[in-house]
Design a protein around this nucleic acid. Structure first.
Length: 273
DNA sequence: ACTAACCTGTAA
DNA sequence: TTACAGGTTAGT
């Protein structure tokens, strides 16, 4: 489900409620959703800790606890983190309940792909999947030159390259298709065929689209909700994702729907070359 | 570089 | 009944 804008929205909406809260109790309804550290269980590590801040890296949430512990959470397709001010009976598909000194956080996930892993903070970027992630697309250090460098001399479609979290962190199927549309580049193009100008255009499109997604609090095409259970409204702004067979909003031509890099891909063969 | 696997729900 | 869904990983 969530890509960078959705994860960022969960981060901000959850932070508002839980910063400086103490986790008094951990209830595991489906224990495989969590992972402890070495021989210490998730419950033992987390119980009694205080939540400090929440960071984000790509599509990962980093929930910083005191005593140098971090919870690395990934929502995958349908994961949710919800905050409730009052004690709640866990809804269907809720796997973990964190009882705070005020309120509760519920982690739920219909498809059971999402995970929350407890790890010592100093090991966050060396001992986890975070260490190999590509650059953060909205940070100042991310330039067209860096994007070109990340593509290297790979022999990949631009669609596959942008979906690869080691190339660039945080993009998923929605925002890749939208960025390529805005840049006027066909998803089938090989990364090695892009000119400097096209890479610059793509760089700008990526930043525009992701920032617009954050401003709209994400895309709730299906399941996505923020920590308050609210939908995002970027769906209204989608130009291509989910619009295969419909007319292009710019030129009116019917949008193509193909399978690329294992994912459904929608684009306008007239506007995107 | 592609496919299957991990899961459940929904829509065709 | 089948195909497909916002993701990632481990296999060919």
């Amino acid at each position: 489900m969530p890509e960078l804008p959705e994860v960022e929205t969960i981060r901000t909406t959850l932070s508002e409620h839980v910063s400086d809260s103490k986790i008094e109790k951990v209830k595991l309804i489906w224990a495989s959703a969590v992972c402890g550290w070495e021989d210490q269980s998730f419950e033992d590590l987390v119980t009694g800790r205080r939540i400090q801040t929440i960071d984000r890296r790509g599509k990962y949430l980093l929930i910083r606890l005191d005593s140098d512990l971090t919870l690395i959470a990934h929502m995958r397709m349908t994961g949710r983190l919800n905050y409730f001010a009052e004690k709640q009976e866990p809804a269907k598909h809720t796997h973990v309940v964190l009882s705070l000194d005020h309120g509760e956080v519920h982690f739920s996930d219909v498809r059971k792909f999402g995970r929350i892993q407890a790890i010592p903070t100093p090991l966050c970027f060396s001992g986890s999947s975070l260490c190999k992630l590509g650059p953060e697309p909205l940070e100042a250090e991310f330039t067209p030159g860096i994007l070109k460098e990340r593509f290297g001399k790979k022999k990949l479609s631009i669609k596959a390259a942008l979906l690869d979290q080691h190339v660039l962190a945080g993009m998923g199927n929605i925002y890749v298709d939208e960025s390529l549309f805005q840049a006027g580049i066909s998803p089938e193009r090989g990364v090695d065929t892009l000119s400097e100008e096209e890479i610059s255009k793509l760089h700008r499109a990526i930043q525009n689209v992701l920032q617009a997604g954050i401003d709209a609090q994400g895309t709730s095409f299906r399941d996505y909700r923020d920590a308050n259970g609210e939908k995002g409204f970027f769906e209204q702004a989608l130009q291509v994702y989910g619009r295969g067979g419909k007319p292009c909003t710019v030129c009116g031509q019917t949008l193509e729907r193909v399978r690329l890099a294992g994912r459904t891909t929608v684009y306008c063969s007239s506007c995107q070359k």
